[in-house]
Amino acid sequence: MIEYIPSGDSAFLVKFGNEISEEINRKVRAYFIALSNKKLEGIIECVPSYTDLMVLYDPLKIQYKSLLKELKILAENISEIEIPEAKTVEIPVCYGGNFGEDMDAVIAHTGLREQEIIEKHSQNSYLVYMLGFTPGFCYLGGMDKSIATPRKEVPSQKILAGSVGLAAEQTGIYPIESPGGWQIIGRTPYRLFDPNRKPEFLLQAGDYLKFYPISEEEYYKLNEND
């Protein structure tokens, strides 16, 4: 059952469910792609999240009654629209050492060896449920629970762009330098967000992300930061 909830006079929230699940998130992605392909006059942009799609529109170009009608028609016909497969983006990570200053804390908490942690972190494909918090930050799902580690008690003042961290059952990458409390286990040489590059962002909601371990030497060869 899809809900269409007005969010003020210039946006609709199209809601596909009430829990975090891959199945619901796939519906959000499919609907987003179908709606983008339709190129409806008056739609400004869309913001996908775990369970819903925020559709921003210009009420001077399309009023909510007509838009609501279009949104419902699209939902009815969505099974007939071909949705491309989600892409998997591979992200190299140099784990531990100077790049993963909190690896020891994760070893201490989980009781696993460093090599086991790296294997568990890099074996799964993670679903990018949505982006937010800071530009380019991906909310990932699908982490192996055996490496879950609580956030640091005292957050770091400065976490470098590209840092890969754990926070309870979540993992993520810091796209820009910022303060933060995640346990940092490695760093990617890739830039998830570069405003002067096209495309500016490496990943989008609905993609899958897979980490693969690289050596320090390879890190410096691939380094896009600094």
Partner: peptide
């Protein structure tokens, strides 16, 4: 709530 899109003025 489960994090979701939000617009100016919300």
């Amino acid at each position: 709530i489960i994090s979701s899109g939000i617009v100016t003025g919300a």
